[in-house]
Design a protein around this nucleic acid. Structure first.
Lengths: 349, 349
DNA sequence: CAACTGCGAAAAATCGATTTACTCGTTTCT
DNA sequence: AGAAACGAGTAAATCGATTTTTCGCAGTTG
């Protein structure tokens, strides 16, 4: 009955060799495309491979190699559109070069970040794309340095003295947001953010503040920052509004903050842009289909991914030289959620 | 200058052995926790490991093993919240059992699905969690069967004769949606969907239609289905409305369809729920913070993930018996985007 | 005292492919 | 003609751990 004896060992190079009547070394050469094999023998090997359904065992094959054709990717999370697209892009770029991408999520923990890195080191990955939880100065980057790993840092980084970095030009984008909000007449703006330690959050905040103050020295900029979690941010924001503060615009430095802001507006019955304006860093597909459409800074995911991979492969192929720090320009989409404060800022429409 | 000689070969088991003055076999035993080692020697080995910073090379270690402690996961895409959460959950569950998750995206292609599967087979993964692009009858599942792989199918599947399956109870959820829409008085409903071949799409459509017709035999149900891409769906939907069709409610069978429907409503200046009602399969975080909040069917991601992993590990550990087919109950959140058609169905508010 | 039992550890085989070194013939060059 | 070069192929070493086998030695047993 049970034809469950199909646990037949998969064909090894020796099986192919004996079936083709040659040695294992010859089979290996045929697979490697070496020309010093008699065409006749090569054909017999090819036939044997075909018949046995032979596939090279990557474990054995990679054993003697110092590096495998594997790229590791470590993202802070997988749930957001941004990192989802990033992983997808990276995977596709890696595959184009014949590499396999192995992705892992640090789940916003620096400890996990280093553990994963150690595991990838054990796996002898050729290189790593690390999107650190905080910034380029964490233990993960240090681990990579001490272990001589090849890698690129992306997203929440500015520049590093050991690794190439690629990230969105947060400061420039924030400056542009400031320019537009000030231009529309806003003079009391609330900035909300998460993760003070993240390199990009500081860049966004500073870029925004500098430009806003330059264009309108009388502008009032309030800041509500929470350290790591979203819920504390929500609480702080609620408290801020409860005090009676009434900014005419809110600029959220990251996606979850935009959601928190929107939900607080809901609680209070405020509508955009009549009661308050809203811009968020990070775009999402849904933002253009809602009433109103939500203004957002679009991060250039594809550019970041492709430049990161370019830099990484250059290093893998041995390129020397000082590390580069790339900043990719963002696009600011001022959608319906932003208006002029004049429209009415006190009562509901 | 260049202190770049740090490419020092990492310590092998033999380095540890010679430093501890024992043989490699003894080191291996100490690491494996075998008790037949003199405590004194064990200590020397431990010290040597400590001093050399020795870590087992997984490549060499796994070489002789038939299976590695690796679980493969293949998702149709990484960009959506649903699959992002799914991968995250699976990764965390795998790690809890000491396994590493290797995730890959088939990018909605059955050909890629099989390629990835072949690669994972080469890697000797202990098991695979496959979320097939279409359904359980594709080439990927067949590949798994012929190669005797261990696996679980999730999401776009109903049941299979070789593998355990876990998915959301689409039919029941759709029936509930039908119940509520009919209950609110809707008698002309448009259902939009993508991927006729996907097991779940059919289940959702049939579940909805059966219940709606049972409760209100006079209900008119229109269906707009596109095969694979979103843009054709958008075109079809636009054409449908251009004909002058005016359903009072739209039920989208998947997330992207909900976005397409919303953007078409925008084009025409229709607001929910006054001009038209909308419910979508698949919830997303933003749906509760928009005006109006969008009604949605929430898939039980955590349950699906954990039951899938439970089933998978049971099989890995040798559990026999016929495959099981689990359906996890969904939650239907009727939010503001759904109202009664009476509210006004012709002109803008 | 020879034979047996066990323990602890070393030696050797194994996993599957790659690579180096080496063996024969054949050409080619001087 | 003799040396060097080359073509085609094989045996063996190698990668780093695990597992099986073997071995020495101490303590028992008959």
């Amino acid at each position: 009955m049970a034809h469950r004896q199909d646990q037949q060992r998969r064909a090894s190079i020796h099986d192919v060799a004996s079936r083709a009547g040659v040695s294992a070394a010859t089979v290996s050469k045929v697979m490697a495309g070496v020309t010093t094999v008699k065409p006749e023998n090569a054909q017999r090997v090819l036939d044997a491979i075909e018949q046995l359904g032979y596939r090279v065992d990557p474990l054995a094959s990679d054993m003697r190699r110092a590096k495998r054709r594997i790229i590791g990717a470590i993202m802070p999370e997988f749930e957001s559109e941004f990192f989802g697209q990033m992983v997808s892009q990276l995977e596709s770029l890696a595959e184009q070069r014949g590499y396999t991408l192995v992705a892992a999520s640090s789940r916003e923990s620096e400890a996990r970040e280093t553990e994963i890195l150690a595991r990838m080191h054990d796996w002898r990955v050729a290189g790593v794309v690390l999107a650190p939880v905080r910034n380029e100065h964490g233990p993960a980057a240090a681990f990579m340095k001490t272990n001589g790993m090849t890698g690129v840092l992306i997203d929440r980084v500015l520049s590093d003295d050991a690794f190439d970095t690629v990230s969105a030009d947060s400061a420039a984008a924030s400056a542009e947001v400031a320019r537009q909000l000030i231009g529309k007449g806003h003079r009391h703006i609330l900035v909300v953010g998460l993760g003070e330690q993240a390199a990009t959050v500081r860049a966004r905040l500073d870029g925004f503040r500098a430009t806003a103050l330059e264009l309108a020295p009388d502008v009032r900029i309030d800041v509500v920052l929470a350290e790591t979690d979203v819920e504390p941010l929500r609480a702080q924001l609620r408290h801020y509004f409860a005090k009676g503060e009434r900014p005419t615009a809110v600029y959220s430095l990251f996606l979850k903050g935009t959601l928190v802001a929107l939900s607080e507006f809901r609680r209070r019955g405020w509508h955009c842009p009549n009661d308050i304006s809203l811009v968020g860093f990070d775009d999402a597909e849904w933002m253009q289909v809602t009433w109103p459409a939500i203004a957002a800074v679009v991060q250039p995911v594809r550019q970041i991914a492709s430049h990161a991979m370019e830099a990484l492969f250059a290093r893998i192929e041995g390129e020397a030289g000082p590390p580069t720090a790339r900043l990719e320009p963002c696009q600011v989409l001022m959608r319906e959620s932003v208006g002029s404060p004049a429209n009415g800022s006190g009562t509901r429409q």
